[in-house]
């Protein structure tokens, strides 16, 4: 995908309004995780418009968005910065570009698919296995939480697992 094509693809996924960005920074300064990001949301949009695909997709910021949508509510140009993030994630997924943190999403989805819900303990454990760096602090916190009865070892069960499986299939077919 060339630079121009990349720009077009993000616009197709996230809306024409992106072209009207005035780089005011309302999105980034509304962002609750901006301080953790290498490129702010504003800069991400600039990278997209300039066709800088590699830089944009390599950015950690894509995976730090919590989808709080404050950026989208406040953008004076009616742009949906959250949609840009989603578009970039989608392109990463499609092209197999994964930053380290993408493993979390994968574990998350797998658990939903197999159990219909999230178990904090299993999720943290699975994540810790794949990210040994994070294992120690996760375990420390886990023990603390377990001792206070804040998390449970029993994940519980949900109804309608077949429905959940159907949603996953439908999405995969798309």
């Amino acid at each position: 995908m060339s630079g121009a094509k990349f720009t077009e693809e993000v616009i197709r996924l996230a809306g024409e309004e992106i072209r009207t960005c005035i780089q005011c920074g309302t999105c980034s300064s509304s962002c609750s995780t901006a301080h953790l990001m290498d490129n702010s949301i504003r800069k991400l949009i600039r990278l997209v418009l300039d066709g800088r695909k590699i830089e944009a997709l390599a950015s950690d910021s894509i995976w730090l968005c919590t989808s709080c949508l404050l950026c989208t509510v406040r953008c004076p140009r009616g742009i949906r910065p959250k949609a840009v993030v989603s578009a970039l994630r989608q392109i990463c997924e499609r092209e197999g570009i994964r930053s380290r943190d993408a493993s979390f999403e994968r574990i998350f989805m797998d658990q939903i698919r197999s159990m219909g819900r999230i178990s904090e303990v299993l999720l943290s454990a699975a994540y810790a296995l794949r990210n040994p760096d994070a294992a120690v602090p996760i375990m420390e916190m886990g023990i603390e939480l377990l001792s206070r009865g804040k998390v449970s070892l029993d994940p519980g069960s949900v109804k309608g697992m077949d429905e959940i499986e159907r949603i996953f299939r439908e999405f995969e077919n798309e």
Partner: peptide
């Protein structure tokens, strides 16, 4: 300061203005 302010908050000792300095690329 180039960057549109996203919000203003009142603290004990004054008003806190949130913005990204888009020329520095820093949220402040």
């Amino acid at each position: 300061i180039r960057g549109r302010v996203s919000s203003v908050e009142e603290g004990d000792d004054g008003l806190y203005v949130h913005y990204e300095d888009t020329l520095l690329g820093k949220t402040l």
